[in-house]
Design a protein around this nucleic acid. Sequence first.
DNA 1: CCGCAATGGTAAAGCGGTTTCGCATCTGAC
DNA 2: GTCAGATGCGAAACCGCTTTACCATTGCGG
Lengths: 339, 339
Amino acid sequence: MLVSVASGRTVRLSDVAAVAGVSLATASKALNGSTRISQATRDRVQAAADRLDFRPDALARSFASGRSGIIGVLTHRAKNTFARPVTIGAVLQLGDQNQAALVYDGDVNESKAMAHSLRELQARRIDGLLVIGDGHEHVSPSLTHHFEVPVTYVFTASSDESDVMYLPDNRLAGRLATEHLISGGSTRIAHITGPRSSIAAGRRKEGMRDALVDAGLEPVGPVIYGDWTRQRGARSLTELIESGAKFDAIFCGNDHIALGLIDACAAAGIRVPDDVALVGVDNWEGTVVDQPGSRQLTSVDLELMELGRLGAASLLMNERAPGEHYSVPTLVVGPSSRR
Amino acid sequence: MLVSVASGRTVRLSDVAAVAGVSLATASKALNGSTRISQATRDRVQAAADRLDFRPDALARSFASGRSGIIGVLTHRAKNTFARPVTIGAVLQLGDQNQAALVYDGDVNESKAMAHSLRELQARRIDGLLVIGDGHEHVSPSLTHHFEVPVTYVFTASSDESDVMYLPDNRLAGRLATEHLISGGSTRIAHITGPRSSIAAGRRKEGMRDALVDAGLEPVGPVIYGDWTRQRGARSLTELIESGAKFDAIFCGNDHIALGLIDACAAAGIRVPDDVALVGVDNWEGTVVDQPGSRQLTSVDLELMELGRLGAASLLMNERAPGEHYSVPTLVVGPSSRR
DNA sequence: CCGCAATGGTAAAGCGGTTTCGCATCTGAC
DNA sequence: GTCAGATGCGAAACCGCTTTACCATTGCGG
């Protein structure tokens, strides 16, 4: 129905060679892109291969050529983090390129389990390694020198700046959010975000500042640092108000904070978006299923799945530029900023 | 820091054999579990292997033994569905068992792309195939006869009942939700759910009925079928009220419907949970990040990641029981039912 | 025409293990 | 003391393809 499975025995390269009337080696070269073979022969072999429905035994091919077709993936607590869409993206991209993924989950800080994973990966003759972090909160120790194959860091920075890294463009995210608020008419924009130690938070703030400068606006109130949770977001509102700042919009470091602010505003009688427009980051409402009508927030989507895809694809490229590369965030508009 | 990588060249079995003073064949047999080898020799070889830090080249081993160490995974639109946690669980489980995952994403209904994926998988000499569906809405066509390796269906039923299937226990989910409402004091429980065609919806309803029967209660009002969306959930409330039913709780087929009902109740001046207690299914609020305080709903978590793990693990078992197997759902209590 | 380079193709050597098969050696029974 | 059977080990085949020699043509300039 779906596929007429090959009848009987599997077709070997030797069969193709026999049918085409050439030697094994010639057949191999004809099918792979070697020069030093006439076009006529190449066509003949190709025809024979097509007719026999030849599919090379990937395992044997790997073995002979030294490439396993397997990419190692090291995730940092993939279970309950934002790394999940990244991992999904990476795995799908690898599949698109016919590469298998050997995924080890662990905690970068548990060096014992980590060591075990690393050794397992080394033994597997993987063709490349993808290290998937947990956002851009900190810097991860570089593992590159442990491997002879390309290593890419996704969703985390490596301690070695010459490593290949793929990160969400947090700075641009901050800019997009802020520009959106400005274009909606806001002129007094405050900022409530995650921990001061978070690199991502820092970059988002920079992006906000860029946008403000471009628009000739001044920041309003102190930047309120906290953690990424809903409750903390709610409490931060009080803090912001007590600072005496007068604001008509808040750029929230992430969606949880923004949701906390929605609660807090409701409690304080502040109308959203009429009195205060809110924008968050992560688009986590859209992460699972994006159904119209289920959205509360305007948010910047960091395109994490795309990030995973980019990172995975980088491993198979010939020319790999060191340093940071970015996925491009997109703005998703919801009721919290729509006036 | 993390690992002191083996110095210099990789250790081959021949090295081990040389050090142990035995032949290649003997070394191989000693390390794998062959009988016909003396315990003394076995120990000697093992010691040598340990000392040299020998790790067999997985690729060569695969090639010789015929097992690739790769499991094929066929997902149905993994991008934007509930299949994502299932896929993550499967991939992590495979990693735990040192198996690589070759993931192809597609639409089961697009037979052309599907055929391509299947052929690719067949060529890869995969050791098993995991078919990941998109819930238990319909029945998927069985692919088992296309492969000579074990095939497991996860998160979907196969058209062949003798296939190995892993599904969420939707019936138990319905029972858990209903029993929770009953234990909270509700006696008049209505039901608003997804499409009549959905197998999952049907089972959840059955589970609800089981619990009602056990408690000596009668169903209240007609079962309202619709789709799984928030808006539709909201509209269904009107429909339920117009039916004339008097209810003090609603078991919602999923969380989106439940969220729609929360909106609709608020608009209609019905207090949740005081006037009407609500329970949903999916626990999608907890799917991304479960932070205290960010929860609105009581919901039954279908444990989809665990489901993926179970399915993946089944491929490597020796004895595979045909038919349906279940992951056990858990109840997560939130404000929507807490009185 | 001869020699050399370029070209098309083949035979054979891996790749790094596992597994079969056969030869020793050792054991124990008669 | 012999001989059958069990046991331990090593030589060699093998998995299916890639790749590196190397040989045989052909083409061309001198």
